[in-house]
Amino acid sequence: MKLVIIVLCLVAIVLAADKYNDLNDDFNISEVLDNERLLYSYGKCLLNNGPCTPEIKQVKEKLPEALETRCAKCTEKQKQTGKQLARELKKHHPELWKDLVAKYDPQGKHQQAFQDFLASP
């Protein structure tokens, strides 16, 4: 019986490690998108051109891996937030979008995967 409990605990730990931390899943992306000053401040952080808040620093640290793995470790909320942010930046702030793409995907190797990600429900 003890062995079963230990194995279940280990499985739970492994499954929990398969996703990014969900502590910031309540982050309101609409507040950022509706506030140009805040949006560009966060953009500067992601582009290494300005200071970072702890939340955006976490995003910045995980972004390369998330792009590489097609957001495999993202929670559903993180995926939805990422899609909303990308769509809004591409449409309303193309210069910031271009700078972010140049920084995080300079060879364009994630473009098709990212388009597929944006097209998914």
Rank of each mutant, 00 (worst) to 15 (best):
N48L: 00
N28E: 12
A86G: 04
C52R: 00
P54H: 05
A113C: 04
W97T: 03
E65K: 13
C9D: 04
E65I: 08
P51W: 01
P106Q: 02
A66K: 07
L46R: 02
L8V: 14
N49F: 00
F117C: 03
Q78C: 09
A17Y: 09
V4Y: 08
L23N: 14
A12N: 09
P51V: 03
P54F: 05
A12P: 10
D25R: 13
I5K: 15
A17Q: 11
G108P: 00
E31P: 07
L33I: 14
V101E: 02
L96D: 03
D99G: 01
K79Q: 13
Q80A: 15
L46T: 01
E61N: 08
E31A: 07
K91Y: 05
Q107D: 09
K109V: 06
E68R: 14
V4T: 12
C9A: 15
D99V: 00
E55M: 06
Y20S: 13
N24L: 15
W97N: 05
D99A: 04
T69R: 10
C71D: 02
P64W: 06
L85M: 15
D99S: 03
K90C: 05
Q84N: 12
P64I: 07
I5L: 15
P94D: 04
L100E: 02
Q78K: 11
P51H: 02
T81P: 06
R37N: 07
Q78G: 12
L85V: 12
P64C: 05
E65Q: 11
V7S: 11
E68H: 09
L23Y: 10
K73H: 11
D26E: 09
H92R: 12
G82E: 06
C52M: 03
Y104L: 01
L89A: 04
N24W: 13
A17D: 09
E55R: 07
R70S: 14
Q80S: 15
